[in-house]
């Protein structure tokens, strides 16, 4: 699905990622954990195509294609979805309009016709119920005036409708209370499938109580310093990140 090899990324002259290696196979859930400033968000941004970053070395291959060469919208149409840490408010563009524009872009990209209006509404309303959202949200401007939890739920709604292959969740748990966290997690879990992979970028372990990862990677100073199974997250919760950073410094 996704193969990252020796990826180095800078912002201006400042190196942020210093040689990331990561293999993600279909159906797997990978958690990327790490302290603030370790490069977690940079990793999710570079995978989704945000500008302002320079790749100085290495590669990212997605389904056999050079991911880093594609403009953001092509990545999205090819099935890469970034759930934003801070979803952007877009006054004047309704949720339902954006969903339809996005879905039709994907269909067009794959040589399919535009979605039928009735089928679309049935699909969308089903997903809205799944995420326990109010249908009124569909007709409101994208994220405008939404609470933190509503914005995150809206991200998952988009994901549920666009059915991406590679989902990158950037600090999805931040700003969520426990009820919202449960609903969002259930939404994500319902999307798990053998041909869909997830990369969850998170500072805290608590999201992983609800979405169980297959692999956990610890990012520190722009490198993956430790990888393991789900149990690694618990260890981090207990000991914090400093023992890993110390170990790296002394190594």
């Amino acid at each position: 699905m996704l193969s990252i090899k020796n990826l180095h990324v800078s912002v201006g002259d400042k190196p942020i990622l210093k040689g990331i290696n990561l293999e993600i196979k279909p159906g797997e859930i990978h958690a990327i954990m790490g302290p603030n400033g370790s490069g977690k968000s940079t990793l999710s941004h570079i995978l989704s195509g945000k500008s302002g970053y320079t790749v100085t070395e290495g590669s990212a291959t997605y389904q056999g294609k050079d991911l880093l060469e594609m403009p953001p919208e092509i990545r999205a149409r090819e099935g890469v979805f970034l759930a934003f840490q801070y979803p952007v408010e877009i006054p004047g563009v309704s949720n339902v309009y954006l969903l339809k524009a996005a879905l039709n872009s994907i269909r067009k990209h794959h040589g399919q016709s535009e979605v039928d209006a009735m089928d679309f509404l049935t699909l969308v309303k089903g997903k809205v119920r799944l995420l326990e959202m109010d249908e009124k949200f569909l007709y409101r401007a994208v994220n405008e005036g939404f609470s933190g939890g509503e914005k995150k739920r809206n991200e998952i709604l988009q994901m549920a409708i666009l059915e991406p292959k590679l989902c990158i969740l950037d600090e999805t748990d931040s700003g969520l209370d426990i009820d919202a966290l449960k609903i969002v997690s259930e939404g994500v879990n319902s999307l798990r499938s053998p041909d869909r992979s997830f990369v969850m970028v998170t500072h805290y372990q608590r999201l992983l109580d609800y979405i169980k990862p297959d692999f956990v990677h610890v990012l520190a100073n722009g490198q993956i310093v430790k990888s393991g199974g789900a149990e690694l997250a618990l260890e981090l919760e207990e000991k914090g990140y400093s023992w890993l950073e110390d170990a790296e410094a002394s190594a």
């Binding site: 403009p71 953001p72 919208e73 149409r77 952007v88 877009i90 563009v93 524009a101 990209h109 666009l162």
Partner: peptide
């Protein structure tokens, strides 16, 4: 960028935002 990450190409994104304004 948010609209691009939702499959909308840059030119259309600009038009959408202008129109919305």
């Amino acid at each position: 960028f948010y609209l691009q990450s939702r499959c909308v190409d840059e030119e259309t994104a600009r038009n959408m935002l202008t129109f919305a304004f």
